[in-house]
Amino acid sequence: MAIRSQLLKGILEGCILAIIARETVYGYELAVKLQNQGLDVSEGSIYPILLRLQKEKLIQGELRKSPSGPNRKYYRLTDAGQESLLTFRENWENVKKPVDQLLRGKEEI
């Protein structure tokens, strides 16, 4: 359970960084975008991750008036966040192909 959820959390973190890299978003908007990508995560799970990414200074939140009125907290990527996203992308590319092959049962020995 622990390893599985750690793995998923790490991947979700990477996806969140990728979305925020494209545009500044607020919490609910981010949840919708993740779901539109087909990532079936519980909507609440983004908030602990957003808190952690802020603590690690990978993203920065700012309270701003939204077009529809109320204050919203918009997130944008920091320089450290950009770097972290690059690292994530690299790691993902490295692991994606071998894992896919392994799961399809096409290992070449």
């Binding site: 919490g27 949840a31 909507e43 609440g44 908030y47 957003l50 939140g61 109320p70 204050n71 907290k73």
Partner: peptide, 17 residues
Amino acid sequence: TETEEVLMELLDHLLIL
């Protein structure tokens, strides 16, 4: 500050739901 900000985010989200 962080506590109140995340509580507000959760409230906004819940209102939309």
